[in-house]
Amino acid sequence: MNNTIDEQLNKQRINIFKALSDPVRIEIIKYLKNVNDEVICGEVGRFVGISKPSGTYHFKLLEEAGLINVRKSAREKYISLNYNVLDKYVTHFFSNL
């Protein structure tokens, strides 16, 4: 495999596992898995028990890692799990090394 591609894949893996290294972000992922649909950020924040600024921080890290999809509509942001990234980098982590 090309070194540049391999470096990009490693960077993606590192970003994903850094994003998953926080208990709050794990709770966000669990919540999104259970609702299995797109939800408003505020709803997730209330369920997890975090402030809006804290939620913004955690959602940004999850989005940058590619673990969630974010859609803005008017004043609301809707998020959902990005199952493709979860499957590729988390579920099949070992087989993709």
Rank of each mutant, 00 (worst) to 15 (best):
E64C: 09
K52S: 12
R25T: 09
K60C: 06
K52T: 06
V39W: 11
E63Y: 14
N34K: 07
N15L: 15
K18L: 11
E38T: 12
F17N: 03
I50M: 03
P23C: 01
I68L: 03
D37V: 14
I28E: 02
V44Q: 03
N15E: 09
A19Q: 01
N69F: 11
D22W: 02
N69V: 08
N34E: 14
L20M: 10
D22M: 09
N15Y: 10
A19V: 09
Y57E: 04
G49S: 05
N36C: 09
G49A: 04
E38R: 12
F59P: 04
R25D: 04
S21M: 07
S51V: 09
Y31N: 08
Y31P: 05
A65N: 05
H58F: 02
E27D: 11
K18R: 10
I29Q: 03
G45Q: 10
I28G: 00
V70R: 03
K30F: 11
K33S: 13
L62H: 07
L20E: 06
V39N: 13
V39P: 15
F59V: 05
K60E: 06
N69E: 07
V39F: 05
S21Y: 00
I40Q: 14
G55A: 06
V44E: 00
R46K: 15
S54P: 07
C41G: 11
E38C: 12
F17L: 04
P53Y: 00
V35D: 09
K30P: 03
V39Y: 14
E43S: 13
E63R: 13
L67W: 05
P53M: 00
S21R: 04
V35P: 15
I68M: 06
